[in-house]
Write a protein that binds this DNA or RNA. Sequence first.
DNA 1: GTGAAAGCGCTAACAG
DNA 2: CTGTTAGCGCTTTCAC
Lengths: 352, 352
Amino acid sequence: MARRRQAVTIRHVAAEAGVSLQTVSRVINAEPNVRPEMKQRVQEAIDRLGYVPSIAAQRMSGSRSYLILAVNDRERTIADWRARKGTDWVDQMLLGGMLTCAEHGYRMIVELIDTHSDHVERELSAAIAAVQPDGIILTPPHADNPQIVRFLSDQKILFARIGSQDDDAGIPISMDDAGSARMATRHLLGLGHRRIGFIAGSFEYRLSGWRVDGWRQAMAEAGLPDAGLLAEGDFSYASGAEAARRLLSGAQRPSAIIASNDQMALATLDTARAMDLAVPRDLSVISFDNTPLAYFAQPSLTAIDQPIAAMASKAAELIIDGQRGKPRPARLTVIPSSLVERDSVAPWPGNG
Amino acid sequence: MARRRQAVTIRHVAAEAGVSLQTVSRVINAEPNVRPEMKQRVQEAIDRLGYVPSIAAQRMSGSRSYLILAVNDRERTIADWRARKGTDWVDQMLLGGMLTCAEHGYRMIVELIDTHSDHVERELSAAIAAVQPDGIILTPPHADNPQIVRFLSDQKILFARIGSQDDDAGIPISMDDAGSARMATRHLLGLGHRRIGFIAGSFEYRLSGWRVDGWRQAMAEAGLPDAGLLAEGDFSYASGAEAARRLLSGAQRPSAIIASNDQMALATLDTARAMDLAVPRDLSVISFDNTPLAYFAQPSLTAIDQPIAAMASKAAELIIDGQRGKPRPARLTVIPSSLVERDSVAPWPGNG
DNA sequence: GTGAAAGCGCTAACAG
DNA sequence: CTGTTAGCGCTTTCAC
């Protein structure tokens, strides 16, 4: 195996520009205390030689690796990939995270970690030891995993927590789940609906609770009861179908249902059809997440769009800022969600 | 910025096990010439300390970086991510590539490169200089880009070419596009169809030509003419719609159409509907790729499933093998595709 | 402001 | 079979 060496190193640039290694290093890192003319001379040599620093070497000596680890739940991610049902969480993370990293000379590495395993910490620390990232982006449910959060805090590693609202450690970034659920509920209230059911996601995800809270608040604001209108799912299609059946079988069935993700909303659509209820004529449905599924469903789903790309981009940005010495935001960074209106919602038809 | 150092280094392990650094290194790299008892002693120390080698340090001294670069077309990839229409090419690459990499202690880094830019080479060489990957996985259209292929050959970097069939350089891995098109065509012939239209993709992708060839061959085998049955698209929905309209407006319209990707197949579905043709009663449609779109389309699309995950996995495997000294396969590695039957195909209805 | 020297964690090459 | 030595390319520290 040939010992593969870098074609153009800082040494070549230094020779070409007739300066020391240090000066080149300073220019690369945009450090102060370099005369403009020196800086220009070095920059020209860099361009002429097409020099690009080796991230391995940069990491070896310095404190930066220019690598950010994006950590996702192994089981769920692989299941989504295999299912090929259009869940594009990872794509959106890459869209936001990768591009923002690239703008600053960073790269993103995707890592899958088991939530349930008793050795989460070991898995994560192995990844950290191997990659030595400058920061870590956590997603649900890891973002609220106390073991992980404590571990990263102790290690003093910069980390962002997408979908979390805890500002005790790391950098929480959220779309404001409660507010989003309120928005969806108010939208339906505004159309005259009074009995609005809610299908919660797994409470292993803290955002599930916040979404329920938002719905409850909006109902309370409108002076409406929520008793008998909440059903719990676990984000899976099957759980959504069961929850929808429960809600729709009651004596006073809801005229609208909000589901905590697209899979459960789709299940609600199918369940309604099976019960001879037309959507949106007999039942309005609003979904959360807005994956491609929402677009393809029949009828297409009105949905709260979870701004994954924007959250990932912000996460990368804040980590890079932090790496450069900027203090982290004092509290939760909110990236607002939006309501995408499609065909699954209609005004309340009245008593007719 | 604190100079962040590795918590546990090879040095600690060596001390713990009471051996030299070299011996530890040999154990890590599974090199021969280490007595089993030594090996075990070292392994125990590694486990006790939770030691994981730093890939940066490994790259610095050795010849391996344990990093593989997966290169995709920038423009198309970003467009797909933004569109959120369920194109899951990158997900499938990750599914196959990342998991296989992980099995061997490698990581995959996704990189986006402009095809059209006149500085493809510069972009790519910058990525290589920065990451110093042990190998590169090229996808269409890069896999057949002569500039890129020549450049990587000259640099003597291991690279796999997904979707390519050239065995002059790199490691070509293909699903056999001609064979796949033949399979689709024969499937329709077997159901009695005689006039089978074909919508080609952009000829900037060489596989577009191969797919056309396969269709032509199958038609010729059956003694059928293909004149007037070929329309050219560019993989976009719009181009597919236009191509479908052209094919369906002829005097002798086809009873079946094969589209070279899902977007164009969807466009064919919509165009047929607009022309009052029912699918599959009046027109059968077969698609290529089998993204989530094929599953969600109405009616769902019978499709040639392009085994992206399997190809990416094979690519990673062959690169890692190569890195370990195994010679690359003498010729094209074929990962067979399969036909996924759904609702867009029916037997030829006869003259009625 | 700029340069020289030391060392990051690991492996290649060579000794023993 | 095992240990020692010399770097890999870069940044840090400390002189000047």
